[in-house]
Amino acid sequence: MEDLKPRAKKSLGQNFLINQGVIERIVRLAEVGSDDTVLEIGPGRGILTRALAARAGRLIAVEKDDRLAAELKAEFADYAHVTIRPADILDCELGELVPPGSKVVANLPYNISTVVIARLCALANPAAAMVFMVQKEVAERLIARPGDPDYSSLSVLVAATHAAKPGFLVGPENFRPRPRVDSMVIRLTPLAAPIAVDETFRRVVQTAFNQRRKMLRKSWLNLPAMDKERLEHLAAQARIDLSLRPERLTPEDFRRMTDVLLAAG
């Protein structure tokens, strides 16, 4: 296990992974090989970075913490295939960092995990595979299916474009400082026939889940320029039962409603 320096910054959601066995399982799940270009987000003190650098053909690691980025740059200065980029991943153009056929592997800070995953899934040319360690609660939402209690707007937006596969649980004892929750490693792979995710689709999904305990005939009234009569008409065209709650709908159902809404203008 690694020592505790430098200290984690709570403001950046840093919890440093210290178990090398967990690292090896992450890399195996990602199936990283010498032909792969890999993007690592939030390398921190570099425990995962070292394992990826030993296997990948090219590695790009984006680290927001300047002090950690400087240390990693010094450590990997002689590694021609490794690039350490000091930057906030939320400010980066992800399409430039994820060329076609590349992979993403990351122990994501809890406070940005859902935003980063949603943006990566929305790329026109997605990564060939993405392996993330996230808070267990977030992982359960990512792998949830219609009817599951954890099924959410995030579940729909990810399932529209990717297949989510659970990997394994990681307990708090594997981190310094110890988080108060369990983590889970998951793998996302792009679908051969993804569902289009545009702004209207996102609005239809998120408006439904903003009031997830209400029937769709209530929640979708909050869509722009919507009234009861218009909603009944559109739902009939989309073959959507408005007495259902949003957790019963598939991504395909949401897409049909979106298409009908767009066609109606």
Rank of each mutant, 00 (worst) to 15 (best):
D36C: 06
A70T: 12
D65M: 10
N19H: 14
Y79T: 09
D36P: 07
L48D: 02
L72F: 09
A30E: 04
E31A: 12
A56I: 01
A77W: 08
A61C: 07
L72G: 02
V38T: 06
R45H: 12
G42I: 02
H81C: 01
L72E: 03
Y79I: 02
V22E: 03
T37E: 14
L39M: 06
D36T: 06
A54D: 14
R55Y: 06
Q20Y: 13
H81E: 03
A80P: 02
L29D: 00
D36V: 01
V32S: 04
E71A: 15
Q20S: 15
L29K: 08
G33H: 11
V38L: 03
L52Q: 06
A56W: 01
Y79F: 13
V32G: 01
A77F: 07
G46M: 09
E31D: 15
G57Y: 08
E75C: 05
D78L: 12
A51M: 06
R58E: 08
R50Q: 15
L59P: 00
Q20G: 12
D36Q: 07
G46L: 07
E75Q: 12
D78F: 09
L72H: 03
I26T: 00
L59H: 03
L59R: 03
L68S: 07
I41L: 09
E40V: 02
R45M: 09
L39V: 01
R28H: 10
I60G: 00
I23L: 14
A54M: 13
R28M: 06
S34G: 10
A61E: 02
L48W: 05
T37Y: 11
G42D: 03
G57W: 01
R55K: 14
L39Q: 04
L17C: 04
I26Q: 03
A30H: 08
G57M: 05
D66M: 13
K64R: 14
V27A: 05
V38W: 02
A30T: 05
I23H: 09
I47W: 11
I18M: 13
A80C: 06
E24D: 15
E63F: 11
G44C: 09
G21E: 14
A80N: 08
V82L: 01
V82Q: 00
A51K: 05
G46A: 11
G33D: 08
L17V: 03
L59M: 05
T83L: 09
A77H: 04
A30C: 07
P43Q: 11
I47G: 09
T83D: 10
D65W: 13
K73C: 10
T49L: 13
R58Q: 14
D78P: 00
P43M: 14
E71Q: 11
G33P: 09
D35E: 12
G33V: 02
A74T: 13
G46C: 13
I60H: 00
E71L: 14
E71I: 12
L68T: 01
I23K: 07
R45L: 10
E24N: 13
Y79V: 02
I47Q: 07
E71T: 08
T83P: 00
T83E: 14
G42F: 08
R67I: 15
T49W: 04
D36F: 04
A80T: 10
R55F: 04
D36W: 06
E75A: 12
V27D: 04
Q20F: 11
A53N: 04
K73D: 07
Q20I: 02
D36H: 14
F76V: 01
L52R: 07
